Amino acid sequence: MIDTSFYRWLRPLLRRRRRGLRAPEEFRPRGTSSKISRLSARYDAEVDAALERLWPKARVYHDREFTRDRADFLLVVRGRGVMIETKVKSDPGLFRGSTLPPLLDRLQRDGRRLVVLLNQGDPTPARELVAAKLGDKARVIVWSGPADDAALCEAVESLLKQATRHA
């Protein structure tokens, strides 16, 4: 038997969302479902602002798609490019860089330069991993805000001096 009650068909469309009801997981914006994702989005915005502040005439390209083998930013200064990868830790412990190998393998093939920015923690194990793959073409630094701008500027400028012209 066919239900002819239009009210039953229209009720979901006409119903107002009640406070306290949560949207199903597939309707939530990507990247906001965990504490780390929210911290990461905020950290990326802070890094973007720092890049604009330190190199106002530079072009900053963002990779909006989440992939493990591409960096989050490409900074092009005076025609030379440096890839920038951001990593967020919720605790101040060691950063081992376990998520970096796909990116490092790709950059090793492409010959690109890389700066890995870490929000907190000890980056010593990650520095060893990055140095083994990319040598002097990469830096791993802790950048937690404008107070660390000098370290970021020094790392990027040292890589720009050795980088080949970016097409």
Rank of each mutant, 00 (worst) to 15 (best):
Y43K: 01
S5M: 09
G121Y: 02
L14P: 05
M1R: 11
V142S: 04
A71Q: 06
T86R: 01
S144M: 03
E85T: 05
R59P: 08
V60S: 05
G145M: 00
V82T: 06
G121N: 01
R68I: 04
L39H: 05
P102C: 02
A131C: 07
R109F: 10
R106I: 03
V77D: 10
G20K: 02
R109Q: 14
S90M: 12
A23Y: 13
L39Y: 07
F27N: 11
L14K: 10
A132L: 07
E154Y: 01
R106L: 11
T32R: 13
G135V: 02
V115W: 02
R68N: 13
R113Q: 15
P101E: 12
D48G: 09
L10Y: 14
R19E: 14
R165S: 09
S33P: 07
I141T: 00
D110H: 12
D69T: 04
K57Y: 12
R30G: 10
F66K: 14
D105P: 00
T99A: 13
R106K: 15
L118S: 06
S144R: 12
V60F: 07
L129G: 07
L51Q: 00
A147K: 05
P56Q: 09
R106T: 09
L107C: 07
A167T: 12
R109D: 14
L103P: 08
K133S: 15
D44Q: 15
M1Y: 11
M83S: 11
R64S: 13
V140G: 01
H62T: 07
R70S: 10
H62Q: 08
G81F: 04
Y43S: 01
V142I: 11
W143A: 01
R127V: 04
